[in-house]
Design a protein around this nucleic acid. Structure first.
Length: 287
DNA sequence: CGCTCGGCCTGTGCGC
DNA sequence: TGCGCACAGGCCGAGC
């Protein structure tokens, strides 16, 4: 579900809603979502703590608590965090509830229950593998054209597989990968090490562009995504290929195709994004 | 080591 | 209409 822009929108809203709130009690309806420590321990440790900041790294949300504790939440495919005023009804997908002393609450809801929660000491975040190994994020100073080139040139798998690998770039997911490859006019099945300098530059620009626009539009709501106030984003109205199978490409009018690349449903324009053999011969010819 | 793929879950939508 | 199957925005770990 949520990719970096959606998680960032949630973070921004929650930062204004829950910072300063103290957790009075915690209700665990589905213990298996709590991966560390044991649910009972988690519950004891979090009770009485105050939220001091809400941060994000890649698609992870980090709630800083007093006494150097960090509550880490990953929403996976269908997780949602909702700030609830007192008396708000919880739907049947509400799995975990943090009740605050002012009678408001933070609800963790999740349809497919793939989400994960952790509670760690600030100096033990390295224990969380996926978080500790996150690569540079789009829009950050560490994410440069040179960095993108350095990882592409030694990558023999598909460029889509590379972009989805959180260890190489943190925060991209299926929608924004398809969108950035389309705008950069690169076929998702191309091998990373076959991209020309011009293609790498275009890809760099478009990754930052789609992530920036996604945040500007409050995220992309395909089905489950909502911000912490329960509102949808609007970036789905600005998508060029994702979810547009058999609809005309905005650039050339050809029909958008859908296949599978890197194990994921993949949308692209067969004309604007020429398949590997063609594009790679093209590059050789140019050099 | 580098990369691909199945599994984890539940709900929805499509084709027959 | 009803039913079964494929697929869904992510990640981890097994396996090649």
């Amino acid at each position: 579900m949520p990719e970096m822009p959606e998680v960032e929108i949630i973070r921004q809203a929650l930062a204004g809603q829950v910072v300063g709130n103290t957790i009075q009690s915690m209700e665990v309806r589905l213990p298996r979502l709590i991966k560390w420590p044991l649910p009972e321990t988690f519950q004891q440790m979090v009770t009485g703590r105050t939220i001091t900041a809400v941060e994000r790294r890649g698609k992870y949300l980090l709630f800083r608590l007093n006494e150097d504790l960090v509550l880490v939440v990953h929403l996976r495919m269908t997780g949602r965090l909702i700030y609830a005023s007192s008396g708000m009804k919880h739907d049947k997908y509400t799995r975990i509830i943090f009740n605050f002393t002012d009678n408001t609450a933070l609800l963790y809801a999740d349809t497919r229950t793939l989400g994960t929660l952790y509670l760690l000491k600030a100096d033990e975040l390295w224990r969380l593998g996926g978080l500790a190994t996150l690569g540079p994020e789009p829009l950050s100073a560490e994410f440069t054209p040179e960095y993108l080139r350095s990882i592409l040139t030694k990558y023999r798998g598909t460029v889509k597989g590379l972009l989805l690998n959180q260890k190489l770039i943190g925060g991209l997911g299926n929608i924004y990968v398809d969108e950035s490859l389309h705008l950069a006019r690169i076929h998702p099945s191309r091998s990373g090490n076959t991209l020309s300098d011009a293609e790498i530059e275009r890809l760099y620009v478009q990754i930052n562009h789609v992530i920036f626009e996604g945040i500007q539009h409050g995220g992309t709501t395909v089905r489950d995504y909502r911000n912490s106030n329960g509102q949808s984003g609007s970036h789905q109205h600005h998508l060029h290929v994702y979810g547009r199978k058999n609809q005309p490409c905005f650039r050339c009018g050809c029909f958008i195709a859908k296949t599978e690349v890197a194990g994921r449903g993949t949308h692209y324009c067969p004309t604007c994004q020429p398949p590997p053999y063609e594009a790679e011969n093209d590059n050789k010819g140019r050099r």
